[in-house]
Design a protein around this nucleic acid. Structure first.
Lengths: 197, 197, 197, 197
DNA sequence: AATGAATGAGGATTCATTCAT
DNA sequence: GATGAATGAATCCTCATTCAT
């Protein structure tokens, strides 16, 4: 039981506990005491490592986004060609690790936190920019000048699928989400600039 | 001169005030006192008309959904043929009345409330079912067996556009949202069941 | 048991309770709960009437100073001629009402509060200015150009007597304090500007 | 290279840091962590050397009083005759070393601490007794039977001047304080037992 | 000697809700 | 119908103090 170098251990435990508790509660109305208890420590210690509850939230938000980013990057590394890269992003977005019940709920709650907390807003903006850039560059060779629009649409759709997932009772269905997103992509890429429905 | 018949007036005022306050706060962390003050009455009176804060939230949620439903129904009444009907739903979804900053924020917050409060969940389910049914029946003649899938995708996309809007600083851009949704639709309807991107 | 118009009653009760509690504790380390309990109400109600603990302290400080000011004014109203006026101020300063154990302790604690809280500093400054002006104008005909100095000395002495009183165990001895202050005055007024001890 | 003999060094550092922090805060509301940080060590070490926060306060109080006592003794050693002795005490009381902003503030705060903590009360009593005795014996040949009274008055005045100083913004003005005290003394010593103002 | 780790206790403040008028 | 009065229950956060290393 080492008595030194606990900081990263404790911080990680708190971050995970924060996500779990928010996921369970389905809202940000969780007390520091709950989080700390789940992380196996006193609330005072939680405050020792993170100055405030808000800091815990932000750290958890960064954690979720980092996990997501890593998964996407990993999938991209293996993908060959633009179509494969797009599929990789979509599949990673709905992978079991990211599309877990709790994570989805926490994600959306943090999303709304961005309306209140500037730092959260910054994180959301970073996420959206990165997503737009990744999708956009993969779409360039396929959709030409429409790449930006399609990327925005696809990004919104992914967000919407998260939102719907959070509301559905029962286990997440990543496959269905992947299918929906892939169908959108397939339709958009089928051909030319015709736009009038 | 005892005032009579105040009930509907007071209730409406409270419902509107609830939406405004949630919109301003960007979260459900608003006090009954704030809402009551904005509605021009004491918090005790707010409790007199609505038994609890949760009831106020639910009434506000119903209000938003009713407004939305009315707008959609109105648009549908004027629409000729399936394509027009779909466009009508989309345009109504992003009409200025529904896509106002505050309303979008309140909407999403109520959305998340459904993770916690059963009655809110029921309302969300009703909304989703109705949306799926409206879109689905309009899509039947155009997309045949894929109508259900396309409707689900379109519904998710609309939700996603709301979500993104809530996070964007600045005034809502309903037209852009309409364009994105219409592009999705155009792509999906262009033709057959090909699916491999 | 009137249920309306409680505000002044409650506020007065809280102010008095604040003074008593600070007097008993001998420091500002008193909890709002203690004060509220002594005033016969919940701490939540105390916060309802005074926004914060600091506000309670400041109100109590004003109360003490107002009492003091009233006593001095009352005594001055009856005094004939400068010597009588000076005596009146001194006697009032050490009257049983002002020189009570608790009041003296509270007074000194508020005094020190002025090092931290601007509004408290302002109150102290007002007190000192008023005292200097009252003593100074009574001293003008007696001490001529030295009136200002003598007033400052007498003011300091009075403060010092309060300070010493607060530290002494046992009941306050206002008469002794009066004698000391009067002796100072007598000595200063005996005659001229000679200064070398 | 195990450090030995650190105790006096650490303790002195803590005592000085305590005085500085209390002076800066203007109150006893300083944390052990603050004091320890200023003294360049952990709060755990501070507790190692002083059992408790109260002990730190008391040690700091003794330190201030010791400094004061030394300064007075030093001045007395050089003084010739009673008048010179009295002047020496007064000058030493308001010397720059004792009349520093922080020291004055700490002094007064410790003063009030005596209302709560017996040991602090004892220290105050010792100071007052010593002061009374020093002044009294110097006054005996000059004021005869009134020596005691005059000493008490002078002691109170000195305390009052400290009190006023603590409240004044800006740099301490030791010279003015000396003048006021000396004027009092001069007046009292000018002559006879006349007392009626 | 020295400190990071850890916590229990406490305290100000907030707020939904109830009640008497 | 309407509200000021009132409170219990929470919650975040702070801090002196202890302990293992």
């Amino acid at each position: 039981m080492p008595k030194v170098g606990m900081e990263p251990i404790r911080k990680t435990a708190l971050v995970k506990a924060t996500i779990v508790e928010i996921g369970r509660a389905g809202s940000l109305d969780v007390t520091v005491a709950q989080i700390a208890r789940r992380a196996g420590m006193s609330s005072a210690l939680a405050h020792h490592y993170f100055g405030s509850k808000e800091d815990m939230f932000l750290a958890a938000m960064r954690h979720i986004m980092t996990l997501y980013g890593a998964e996407v990057r990993g999938a991209l590394a293996l993908a060959q060609g633009p179509k494969e890269r797009l599929r990789a992003v979509i599949v990673a977005s709905f992978s079991p690790a990211n599309f877990r019940r709790e994570a989805v709920s926490a994600w959306l709650n943090f999303w709304l936190l961005a309306q209140t907390v500037p730092e959260a807003q910054r994180l959301v903006a970073v996420y959206q920019r990165r997503m737009q850039s990744t999708l956009g560059s993969a779409l360039r060779p396929l959709a030409g000048p429409r790449a930006g629009e399609v990327a925005a649409g696809l990004g919104s759709l992914i967000d919407g699928l998260y939102l719907r997932q959070a509301l559905r009772p029962g286990a997440p269905d990543g496959d269905a989400a992947v299918r929906t997103a892939m169908a959108y992509l397939a339709a958009e890429l089928r051909d030319g600039p015709d736009r009038s429905p």
